[in-house]
Design a protein around this nucleic acid. Structure first.
Length: 939
RNA sequence: GCGGAUGUGGUGAAAUUGGUAGACACGCUAGACUUAGGAUCUAGUGCCGAGAGGUGUGCGGGUUCGAGUCCCUCCAUCCGCACCA
């Protein structure tokens, strides 16, 4: 069997193998799936990428590889697996590029997609490309527009807790009008100042009035609201697109501006979005972030009647128990009654203050949260119970968008109110006696603990009881009601941009109407430039002959980036359907996503919006489920590992990292392609840039130049970007796939470092060599020994366990251990190698396909081969190597039969010479024996 | 400030139920072979110590026969939210 290897060994030629099988899979449509299968369906989805001009770097495929391995595993274990891919192809970068170059964003996008597709294909994913979608293609956005129309034509009925046709609401209003009670019941999801009206009044309203009333109910609506306006980008942004007062893309300042905007009434779904989280198998951190973002707080609204004015100021409070401690009321500067409330003497001061706050950007306002500012309006409200006059102030610590834009200030029991009161010398009234000593001159007592004092009927109650009682009292006396408030804001849905889905709306007498669904899609028109018009209209204002029925103006803003991604998982189920977004039987077959793989950075954007649309689509009967993604895993970020050379200050001399302490140096980023295991390719470095042509080097004693390193985000400017392409070229896709998994747990962020890749590549070579013991392919059909079976079945068990808990990194290790042991054990048995090939197939699909074919199977059949199962009979052990510990510390080992009883083990251990040595003549106080595990002697 | 995550060799990491800490891999050291190749193979490699041995999972404490794992306190790093009433 072991012949003298005169012929050159047949090496592992990964480049040929990978090219061959990628071509095979493509031309045989190996990964194409349909719903005509007796196997149960399983839906694996990756967050689809935005095809940027830079292409993929090694960080992008991390999640794709993990989900691909899992999808293949599911396929081998008898599931009908759907694993599609597409492109989120509307977006700002292509448009910015278009503005600079005049090139149509569709062209750039197409080129970028081709590049991405090419890069993805090289990694051997099992995507069913026949289902590819692109959000910017009219056949796709036709249905994004269709959903918008459904949202426009729906309202959220709080009684049924779901969306219903707006026509039903119209019928109701015709019959009953709009009562005050009805209005109160819907206050949660609305930001409305609607007045009640009767059925007769409704009938008498003009079309314009009717439509503006209905606009308060529609789930997609045109409303005036404060938005995040970004002048540099010339567009509004959603809350999740603003980070620390700057735009997420580009980092430009963002200001608050009152604008008429298309918005989504996501707040109507706040409670359902919150409740739905509990049942989801998502990372806790994402669920927490969403809970936080939704920000539910339970409390009461309380009305304070104005003195010498009509009406009242309504506040929201979570602490109605402290009502007797109110010493002033504060309004947000944007509160609509500020100007009408200020007295003649205070007018100038108030107006100046309001003007100042308006011009402060969101960022400035956040930057000095500790600066206390405010101004007295000169007006008073009456305390609802004591009727004492309470001064009304304006302060920018009160936010117009939260609660009612007004707060009742209880300085003794709220930290901000306390600071405000001490700054302006306002009274501080204690109404809760804490159990422990507390100095009320130093700060507020904000714990929800203690006994009520100075509060008439509430005196003596605990905080908890007082909250209940006061909430009831307020409602009973008619001063307010119990109320649940959410931090979640309605989402702005229009962008003053070109490269997005046109909003399917036209205007007739200034009233917006949706276009008939039969006329969809409303195609994105051509424009001469991608800039706003001279009149300040969005770029769509440049389109010529672009009118509904050649007469009515279309809406000129487009949809935001998150529109297309909010429902794309449904389109994969039926990507070419021209009559509906997806056929009901296909939706019913595949259902929602079983495993969703993607980044955690979408926690409050995409993942919340997609859940919202899913709930809406359920309400209108399109989907039979309430949540889009059952289980989610967030892959960690792969960070770059930048390399540095150290230039001696003022010279063209570079000193090696080990010697740099003796010099004054400046670190300079060096392209990582010039560095291998921290050693600099000096000739390459000199040739890299002309300025380094004549550089001199101070080397280590070994004659090498060592580079320093730092872990940073991967970026072109840091010369630390690693593309998958070059690694696929050098080591092959199977190596790259396994190496990315080998780096560590998928959900953990980690620095990229190619150092270890040779280890994984070496493993695949070693695996290949098992099938080529003397150079050529050769397997042994004889029956393997028990030892071989044991190695195999131990591995099967571990690999399956690792896959079931998404522990891909330990999976790779276990394959390595297996191949090391089989190499050691010798013997290229078919009965061992064949199941091992299937076992490895999800991780390394190319090499296993090649070997599978060499083993004599039909090419391409590996994908459908059943996954090996464990035969426990091979794993039964008769002996165990017992660690013997003295006082919990392992001292030596003894191999004993597992059939021994505790007593027998004790006898053997106690008579062992090592034991006697360690006992030093003492008697053990206690002997712990756990059969099959350990022995511990306590002395 | 609130919430979450993480902390283990020179490096990436493993330890699934409280039971041999550092599997696997990189790197490093020494050696073998070779048509110097980024090939292959052998041995070693947590730290201190010549060795016996001691010591070791961010710090300090606790529970336990036994703790990386459970409990408490603190520290550091990262992420999310943040005048949210």
């Amino acid at each position: 069997m072991y012949l003298c290897p005169l012929i050159a060994p047949m090496e592992y030629r990964f480049q040929d193998i990978e090219k061959k099988w990628q071509h095979f899979w493509h031309s045989n449509q190996t990964y194409r799936v349909d719903e005509h299968s007796t196997n149960p369906p399983y839906y694996v989805l990756d967050m689809f990428p935005y095809p940027s001009g830079a292409g993929l770097h090694v960080g992008h495929p991390l999640g794709y590889i993990a989900s691909d391995i899992f999808a293949r595993y599911k396929k081998h274990t008898g599931f009908n697996v759907l694993h599609p891919m597409g492109f989120d192809s509307f977006g700002l970068p292509a448009e910015q590029y278009a503005i600079q170059t005049g090139q149509h964003p569709a062209k750039t996008t197409k080129e970028n997609i081709a590049r991405y597709r090419d890069q993805l294909d090289k990694l051997g994913f099992n995507y069913d490309w026949s289902r590819e979608i692109q959000t910017s293609s009219p056949s796709y956005y036709k249905w994004t527009q269709w959903i918008f129309i459904q949202l426009f034509n729906s309202w959220f009925n709080p009684k049924t807790n779901k969306a219903e046709p707006i026509d039903q609401l119209i019928q109701y209003l015709q019959a009953h009008g709009l009562s005050a009670e009805f209005l109160a019941s819907i206050s949660g999801g609305m930001d409305t100042e609607l007045e009640p009206f009767t059925a007769v009044e409704w009938g008498a309203f003009t079309e314009g009035v009717k439509q503006s009333v209905l606009m308060n109910f529609r789930l997609a609506y045109l409303g005036e609201s404060f938005v995040n306006w970004c002048p540099e980008l010339g567009t509004v942004l959603a809350n999740d697109e603003v980070v620390n007062g700057l735009s997420e893309r580009g980092g430009y300042p963002v200001e608050r501006k009152l604008l008429k905007q298309w918005s989504m009434r996501i707040t109507a779904y706040a409670q359902r979005l919150l409740e739905g989280l509990d049942a989801l198998d998502w990372p806790e951190s994402i669920k927490d972030t969403q809970r936080n973002w939704i920000g539910r707080s339970e409390g009461a609204s309380v009305r304070f009647p104005l003195i010498n004015h009509e009406g009242w100021i309504e506040v929201f409070t979570t602490r109605p128990d402290t009502l007797y401690g109110v010493s002033f009321v504060t309004l947000a500067p944007e509160h609509e009654w500020v100007s009408s409330l200020c007295s003649v003497e205070q007018k100038a001061e108030v107006e100046a203050y309001v003007a100042k706050s308006k011009h402060r950007s969101e960022r400035e306002r956040m930057a000095d949260v500790n600066t206390i500012s405010g101004v007295f309006t000169g007006s008073y409200v009456a305390h609802p119970f004591t009727h004492e006059p309470i001064p009304v102030w304006v302060g920018d610590y009160v936010l117009v968008g939260y609660g009612t834009g007004a707060v009742m200030a209880v300085p003794a029991h709220d930290e901000r109110d306390f600071k405000f009161a001490t700054h302006f010398f306002l009274p501080i009234k204690q109404v809760i006696q804490p159990q422990q000593p507390h100095d009320f001159s130093l700060g507020a007592w904000t714990e929800k603990a203690g006994t009520l004092i100075n509060s008439e009927a509430l005196n003596g109650l605990s905080v908890y009881d007082a909250i209940q009682k006061m909430t009831d009292n307020i409602a009973h006396e008619g001063f307010g009601s119990k109320r649940i408030n959410y931090r979640l804001r309605n989402a702005v849905f229009g962008r003053q941009r070109y490269w997005g889905e046109p909003i399917p709306v036209y205007f007739k007498d200034d009233i917006p109407y949706v276009i008939p669904t039969e006329t969809l899609p409303l195609n994105l028109p051509e424009v001469d430039k991608y800039l706003p018009t001279e009149d300040g209209d969005p770029p769509l204002g440049r389109a010529v002959h672009w009118k509904f029925e050649d007469f009515y103006e279309y809406e000129k803003s487009t949809m935001p980036g998150w529109a297309g991604s909010s429902w794309y998982y449904l389109r994969y189920l039926d990507p070419t359907n021209e009559n509906m977004l997806a056929a009901p039987d296909k939706i019913a077959y595949w259902r929602n996503v079983d495993l969703y793989m993607g980044g955690a950075e979408h926690a409050t954007g995409h993942l919340l919006y997609a859940r919202f649309w899913c709930k809406f689509l359920k309400d209108i009967g399109i989907v039979p489920f309430d949540e889009p993604f059952k289980k989610m895993i967030n892959q960690g970020m792969i960070l770059g590992r930048s390399s540095f050379v150290y230039r001696v200050v003022g010279e063209s001399t570079f000193v090696s990292a080990g010697l740099k302490e003796s010099y004054r140096t400046t670190p300079i980023h060096v392209d990582i392609s010039l560095v291998s295991n921290d050693r600099l390719n000096i000739e390459g470095f000199k040739a890299w840039r002309t300025e380094f042509e004549n550089a001199t080097f101070i080397l280590e004693p070994t004659g090498e130049y060592l580079c320093g390193y730092e872990v940073e985000k991967m970026s072109k400017s840091k010369y630390n970007v690693q593309t998958p392409d070059e690694l696929v070229e050098r080591f092959g896709a199977d190596t790259l796939r396994m190496y990315e998994m080998f780096l560590g747990p998928v959900e953990q962020s980690k620095p990229w470092d190619t150092k270890g890749i040779t280890g994984v590549h070496g493993f695949l070579k070693k695996f290949w060599r098992l099938f080529h013991p003397s150079g050529t392919f050769e397997v042994n059909d004889a029956t393997p020994s028990l030892e071989h079976y044991k190695i195999l079945h131990k591995t099967i068990r571990k690999i399956r366990e690792d896959l079931d808990r998404f522990s891909f990194n330990t999976g790779v290790s276990n394959f390595m251990i297996c191949v090391n042991e089989l190499t050691e054990a010798k013997g290229n048995y078919r009965e061992i190698l064949e199941p091992l090939t299937v076992l490895l197939a999800p991780y390394a699909p190319h090499i296993t396909e090649e070997l599978w074919a060499l083993l004599g199977h039909e090419p391409g059949s590996l994908y459908n081969a059943p996954y090996p199962t464990v035969n426990p009979a091979y794993l039964v052990e008769s002996q165990h190597e017992y660690p013997v510990s003295i006082n919990g510390r392992m001292r030596f080992k003894m191999t004993l039969s597992l059939s021994l009883t505790k007593e027998e083990i004790e006898t053997v251990v106690m008579s062992e010479s090592q034991t006697i040595k360690w006992l030093e003549g003492k008697d053990p106080k206690k002997i712990i024996i756990v059969p099959g595990k350990i022995v511990n002697l306590v002395i």
